[in-house]
Design a protein around this nucleic acid. Structure first.
Lengths: 334, 334
DNA sequence: CCGCGAAATTGAAACGTTTCACTGCCGCGG
DNA sequence: CCGCGGCAGTGAAACGTTTCAATTTCGCGG
């Protein structure tokens, strides 16, 4: 193995000089710096991560807690992960993968044994049992999602409340008076996952304000569930003319099923979704949607961590304003 | 921070004794061992991962290369990852996340800087450009998937060739004489991803043997693509009575579309899929399928790595025999 | 030509483990 | 009673960095 010593000898300088060239924490003359860099290249030197971590108490690793068992919104999760890994690498950080299922103990272990410098937790629920433990960690922590007691924690997420309101505004502006919501899986509401509840709040509250009648129906991620859900929402007496879909798993089948039941989109019924842009655009009929800005949220989360690692401490909840893209699946009520 | 020194003092033994209690590499008397363990517990000691790595040149981390951009078979990928992480943890290993997109350089960096002890690569393609570099790594490497030149590499995968043959056997046994294959995305075939090609080989070869006519149609992961694909495969002159789906992305819509076109499953057309069991079971009509044993493949891959880390070196290609579950979506030709 | 301050470079002490070589100690056979 | 083998436990030297404090070098004004 090539060590910093070899590099130093090869470049004719001391070990510490090489270290300073690498870290840039001291001014090094142009000439020396070049010589050292060349030696590093020629010898193919890579600093030993463990030794580095030991001496500097910085691992340059961040722990990422991912929900893996979720059969629901996998594409969204992957977008988050992808953006997080990319952004982390841009800051010269690697990502250690932990699963949500293994709980807060694993996070504690990883931090206590100095395997990572900071923690990023995805899919945080309203009453998330991990939150108290996370709060105690002596390292920066950023949550994607917002728990009930968010004070003193850094959180990043789409503003689901505003999103709920926004979709209603959109439909109300088009003249719709009765709208249905195809919600997430009942399980999601039961365990109080924040985003579903918050979306629903914004949705309901805005509808009340605008005098729009609402029909809410959670929907399990299966075809029969969707079928029943649509059957219920489209009962003639409800006179639903606008449909909001907050459920990636069944999104693909919604338009198909509507079509099969003889409802054209958007002529007979307007459809608007809350999902990643790519997904909305890939539907049989491209769907008007509010984007889930996974890329952006992931990047912001990592940037926040980096700032935390540099000593900043103004923890806060950052909610991103919803952006609505009209793809023609909504139209004025006839 | 609590160090091994603190533990030693607290337990009234030497530092090395504590280390040996932890590693079990030397016999330690029952009494001492208990005393040390108690001190560890009471002080909440966690060995410093970096120091450990430095002294032992073992990180207890394995690098996992995951394809993140793939919009295709995400649930399958997640199953792999989940199983890998779980198995790794059972061996006291953590998992470092690398993305396929960042290429072999990142893998090299991670190994060269001793951030991980071994590498697990998912989604290996037939002519994978990363393979030569992976071969040079001075650490155990296991691939999930099989490249063209697999000699000297450890590979684990479902036997896709046998799977292709198996589905044809199944349909042929039921009397079907003309079967269609809804394949993976054209992109998958183009980049020569091994599994798609191998499945196709087994499929074609067995059909020839059994005198079954085949109609192969790759299918992009979008509704219009599926629609066109079905239109093509179901042309009356083809007389297709059996349909094989090797495409998780459109699987959900296949049965819906068939139904819409007035074909009942399995009365008018038999459908058999290659996908995870859970997915086949969750369809509008539960589908007869060959399982993609992600759990098992992931676990075997990790176990193989662990053996490699213990010095074993009988590298080989392990192909798992396909298992077919009949869920009633296939029937005798009428 | 000398001395001074700033800039560049260096030596050596951490950092927290593992592991090798060694020391005590105990019991047993001669 | 002595010596010997084996078991438990210990001391100290790695492991490859970072970083503090100290030293050397350099340019410049006096």
């Amino acid at each position: 193995m090539i060590t910093i010593k070899d590099v130093a000898r090869h470049a004719g300088v001391s070990v510490s000089t090489v270290s300073y060239v690498l870290s840039g924490k001291r001014p090094i003359s142009r000439a020396t710096s070049h010589r050292v860099r060349r030696s590093i290249r020629e010898l193919g030197f890579h600093p030993h991560a463990g030794a580095r971590a030991l001496a500097s108490s910085r691992t340059h690793v961040l722990a990422l807690v991912v929900p893996l068992r979720t059969d629901l919104n996998l594409p969204v999760i992957m977008q988050f992960v992808s953006s997080i890994v990319t952004t982390a690498r841009a800051h010269d950080y690697d990502v250690l993968l932990l699963t949500k299922e293994s709980g807060a103990d694993e996070v504690h272990r990883v931090i206590a044994s100095s395997r990572a410098d900071a923690v990023l937790v995805m899919d945080v629920e309203a009453r998330d049992p991990r939150v108290p433990a996370l709060r105690e960690l002596p390292v920066p922590v950023v949550l994607i999602g917002v728990p009930a007691e968010a004070d003193g924690l850094d959180c990043v997420d789409l503003d689901f409340t505003a999103s709920g309101a926004r979709v209603v505004e959109h439909l109300a502006d088009l003249g719709h008076r009765s709208v249905g919501l195809i919600g997430s899986s009942p399980a999601v509401y039961e365990r109080g996952t924040g985003y579903a509840t918050r979306f629903l709040e914004g949705f309901t509250e805005c509808a009340r304000r605008r005098g729009v009648t609402t029909h809410v129906h959670p929907c399990a991620p299966s075809f029969p569930a969707l079928s029943e859900c649509l059957y219920d929402l489209l009962r003639p007496d409800r006179a639903v003319t606008g449909l909001v879909v907050h459920n990636e798993a069944v999104l693909g089948d919604v338009v198909l099923e509507l079509r099969r039941r003889g409802r054209r989109v958007p002529d007979d019924v307007s459809v608007i979704a809350l999902c990643p842009d790519a997904m909305a655009a890939a539907q049989p009929v491209p769907l008007t949607s509010i984007s889930i800005p996974a890329e952006e949220v992931g990047a912001i989360a990592v940037e926040t961590l980096m700032r935390g690692l540099q000593g900043e401490h103004p923890s806060q909840v950052r909610l991103l304003a919803p952006a609505l893209t009209d793809r023609g699946s909504t139209a004025a009520r006839r």
